[in-house]
Deep mutational scan, measured.
Amino acid sequence: TFELKGKVGKVVKIAEDHYLVEVEGDKWIAYSDEKLSLGDRVMVVDVDGLKLKVKRIP
Rank of each mutant, 00 (worst) to 15 (best):
S37G: 09
V23H: 01
D40S: 12
F2K: 15
V8K: 07
L38R: 05
D46Y: 03
K27G: 07
K5Q: 13
Y19C: 08
V45A: 06
G9E: 00
D48N: 14
K5F: 15
L38I: 12
E22C: 05
D17H: 08
E24W: 01
W28C: 02
D26E: 09
G25M: 09
K7C: 04
E22P: 01
A15V: 12
V23L: 04
I14H: 11
Y19R: 03
I57K: 06
I14W: 11
V8M: 07
E24P: 02
P58M: 08
K35T: 06
D17K: 10
L38P: 09
L4P: 15
L4S: 02
I57C: 12
V42E: 00
K10L: 13
D17E: 10
M43W: 03
E3H: 03
V45T: 09
V44W: 01
L38F: 10
V47M: 05
D33E: 11
H18T: 13
G49N: 12
G39M: 10
Y31L: 06
A30V: 03
S32Y: 04
D46S: 03
K35S: 08
I29L: 09
I57D: 14
K53I: 08
D33G: 11
W28P: 01
L4T: 03
Y31G: 09
V23T: 02
V54I: 09
V21M: 08
W28G: 02
D17C: 11
L4Q: 03
K10I: 11
G9H: 00
G39V: 13
E22T: 11
S37I: 13
K53Y: 15
K53P: 00
K10W: 13
V12Y: 14
D17N: 12
V11G: 00
K51E: 04
G39Y: 13
D17T: 08
I57S: 09
V21Y: 01
F2R: 05
G6D: 06
G9V: 03
D40C: 07
S37C: 09
E24Q: 03
E22G: 06
L50E: 04
S32R: 15
I14A: 12
G25A: 11
R41K: 06
E22K: 05
S32A: 09
V54A: 02
W28A: 02
E34H: 09
I57N: 04
I57Q: 12
A15Y: 11
T1H: 15
F2G: 15
D26K: 13
D46V: 03
T1N: 15
